[in-house]
Design a protein around this nucleic acid. Structure first.
Lengths: 190, 190
DNA sequence: AAAATGACCAGTTGAATAAAACAGTCATTA
DNA sequence: TAATGACTGTTTTATTCAACTGGTCATTTT
């Protein structure tokens, strides 16, 4: 039976990080779960954080792919931005690993986790920035700083989905899409 | 020499909360600072939290007043919203008490502080909501849910001022005003 | 020879507990 | 009658030390 020790380690670590978080996952535990001597882990990864980072890079790639898939060229730009952002935030809700890490970052402030969360946010911003740049070049939206625009879109989404939810009834996907359109695309001016 | 013991207590407590935060301020300390026996404090305030709340209510009233003053009827609605929000956030930066509390809330999560911060946010949202409602009725902006609109405006401001600042160069007041106008009033649509 | 291993080490953590500080009370004082 | 500060039960903080953890490396397995 062929074994890919590196893959075993990654799978074991992913499972453990998802279940217990970063800090509460020990390298002994990962070794045992992966049926591997602890030293073996260190032949593939320099340390715990690098193992963690590699797992997150994979997760980010999957997230990007999911967002890309949500885009439909036959729809308007604003609908697509909505679909992509909504998909990314749903992705976060679906994956135990991101849920656990989000929680650990907020409750315990584990530095390695905060680092990784910043990387994930950066990846999302970079993704949207790319789309905004294309839309500006195609004349689909007004000229604007793509970096600030991506940032504002993302923050508005986080606010509408997560922050608003803490003040009462959560908004439906349709409502969020509509508000997104109203505030950022149509504008409030009469 | 006439003495207003209640006022002395409030001033002493304000000073101490500003200097050391809520948790690190002891009632013994406040009593000593106010030149008052500890028991005297409890003839005016039921407990530490109520003393704290009374101080915050005053602060909120001052904040509202400052925001109201920033409004100039001869300017456009969006300029006034900008001026009011900017003034409120500057107010936060100017007052040692809010700075200290903001820090304590984030770093230590003291429940009484989080409560009070929520009250302050609520006051700001209520203020903006009021202005939005008037603007809608006057036909100065499109019909919209005033609660959600106030929420979005506030969150956008926090993002542009505090969150963006952590990613590089802070935006100037003019830039913030311009971005506010672009995103929320004009919209990105071509 | 190369890859895998787990006993081992230095540094860190967290449980246990002792000591100090605290918010709030109330019998005494002015 | 209003003010007080010594007092109390509880919470917070400081200290200790045994258990644990990430990472290494001499030894074993392939």
């Amino acid at each position: 039976m062929a074994v890919d020790r590196k893959q075993d380690i990654i799978e074991a670590a992913t499972k453990s990080f998802s279940l217990f978080g970063y800090k509460a996952t020990t390298m002994d535990q990962v070794a045992k779960l992966a049926n591997v001597g602890k030293g073996t882990i260190y032949t593939f990864f320099k340390n715990k954080e690098e193992l963690f980072d590699e797992i997150i890079q994979t997760l980010i790639a999957e997230m990007r792919e999911a967002a890309e898939k949500a885009i439909d060229p036959s729809l308007t730009f604003h609908e697509n931005v909505h679909r992509a952002l909504f998909e990314i935030l749903q992705f976060r809700r679906r994956h135990q690993l991101t849920i656990k890490l989000f929680q650990e970052g907020k409750e315990m402030g584990t530095p390695a986790v905060l680092d990784v969360m910043a990387m994930m946010e950066e990846a999302v911003l970079s993704f949207i920035k790319e789309k905004v740049l294309l839309a500006v070049q195609a004349g689909k939206i007004k000229p604007c700083n793509p970096e600030v625009t991506a940032f504002v879109m993302f923050k508005l989404y986080i606010s509408l989905i997560f922050d608003w939810e803490q003040r009462g009834a959560p908004l439906s996907e349709e409502e969020i899409s509509r508000l997104f359109e109203l505030y950022l695309f149509e504008g409030l001016s009469t």
